[in-house]
Amino acid sequence: MSYQIKIPSCVYGDEGSIENVKAIIKKEDSKKIIIFTDKEIREHGLLDILTKLLDENNTEYRVYDSLTPEPAYQDADRVIKEAEDYNGDLIIAIGGGSVMDVAKLCSVLKGASYSVKDLLDDPAQARKQLKTIMIPTTCGTGSEATCNAIVAIPEEQSKKGIVNDNMIPDYVILDANFIKKLPKPIVAATGVDALAHVVECYTSKKATPLSDTYALAGAKLIFQNIREAYENADNLEAKNRMLLGAFYGGAAITGSGTTAVHALSYPLGGKYHIAHGVSNAILFAHVMEFNKDACEDRLAKLYDAVFHGLPARTMSEKAQYIIDQIADIVKVTNIPTDLKEFGVKKEDLETLVEAGSKQQRLLINNRKELSHDDIRNIYLKVLK
């Protein structure tokens, strides 16, 4: 079987790596920058770190910050159209997954004849119009490494990914100063999202030697640092490792793909607007428990890579240890695990089952096929 992986061509890491923006602008001979962010990033002063550099560099820019969290495709289209009349030649995204996803969409939409809705119907038509710089401000989405953009589809009460290699970012800046003051609930949700990426990609039917390399490296960084990054806001070393682990997770996605955890989480975000990382965290251990007998060997290898100093265990025990660690991380980071806390009722169950079963782009990656009854039983475990 042939395999490939496509990742950003230039990645800068560690504290202070934001300074490389100036060199990128010079290299690209950029005159006008389109900046995508959100109001919370602006309010926390993170945007100021970037705009100060641009001002020092005498670089013109315009900021677009009206994006809503977990945006619908109509909202993404609206924000991109706002930027249509500005003659920018380079895009910078500073934010979480939604901000970076919209920036990637803009990179293939600005000046093009197709819309976000058109790409939902046929993502193959996307062509890169502008280069991008991604500056993640969370420690988990991995969007800075992927060719995916996720948008909600209100009429279907779900989410869908637009996937096209032309959306691979050109530059990435992994600077822990941008997540130094990240609120603990966001460290938790985005960190567990990143953990789901590496575990799902490693246990995916589409896993390859290349994606495995990134998934294992990312798993080691995230399992070993997420608790510390959550508890100690000043530990920039742990947060740098989380940023790198999240990037590795995104790279693994481009070579492999997530599975049933993400597939079943999409209806929770689309219908109930539960944050993506939280919806993944709620389902994560339960889906892996369901998958265990089909990927026990892979989970055992993950154990060997991450927890190699622990006492010897059987393959089954190693796999269970990984699943137990996932559940414990969700618990100690105080992520809610009951869907009722988000207004989900048992009478909504069949709607969720139907919506989840339609996420075939991801379900086909799962090593164990899920029937409607299987999906129903997993949702019931989190509808207590």
Rank of each mutant, 00 (worst) to 15 (best):
D89C: 04
E84V: 09
G88Y: 04
D89N: 03
V102T: 14
D118M: 13
N87E: 14
Y114P: 12
L130H: 13
T68K: 15
L119M: 09
Q125H: 13
V151T: 06
K110L: 13
D101N: 06
N87K: 15
S107P: 07
N87S: 14
V151G: 05
V151H: 01
E70Q: 14
L130W: 13
K104T: 04
A152W: 08
D77K: 13
V102A: 07
Y86N: 03
A126T: 14
T68E: 13
L67P: 08
E82L: 11
L90V: 02
G95H: 08
I91W: 05
D121V: 15
K128M: 01
G88C: 03
T132W: 01
D101T: 07
A149R: 04
N87P: 12
T141Y: 08
P154N: 10
V99R: 01
Q125K: 15
Q129S: 13
E70T: 12
G97T: 07
D118P: 13
G96M: 05
D122S: 15
A145T: 04
D89R: 00
I153Y: 09
V79C: 08
E84C: 10
G95W: 12
I92F: 07
K104Y: 05
S107Q: 06
P69T: 03
G142H: 01
C139A: 09
N87H: 14
E82M: 11
A83V: 06
G140M: 04
G140V: 05
A76E: 02
L109I: 05
A83D: 07
L105F: 07
L130I: 03
K131W: 02
T141H: 02
L119S: 09
D118F: 09
S113E: 14
T141P: 01
P69F: 04
E82G: 02
G140Y: 01
P123M: 06
A145H: 00
I133L: 00
E70A: 12
M100N: 00
D77E: 15
R127I: 13
N148D: 13
R78E: 11
A126Y: 10
K110P: 04
G140K: 03
S107A: 05
P154S: 02
C106D: 11
C147L: 10
T141G: 01
T138C: 09
E82I: 08
M100S: 00
V108M: 10
T138D: 02
G142A: 01
Q125C: 15
Y73P: 07
T138I: 08
K104S: 00
S143E: 00
I150Y: 03
L130Q: 11
C106L: 06
I153K: 11
T132Y: 05
P154D: 08
S66Q: 13
A126Q: 08
K110R: 14
Y73A: 04
S66Y: 14
I135P: 03
T137Y: 03
Y73V: 10
A72P: 15
D85C: 10
A93P: 03
Q129D: 04
T141N: 07
K117M: 12
V108S: 04
L120N: 06
P69E: 00
A103P: 01
D85W: 12
D77F: 13
I150E: 00
L130S: 11
G142P: 06
G88A: 12
E144T: 00
D118K: 09
I94R: 04
C147W: 06
A76Y: 06
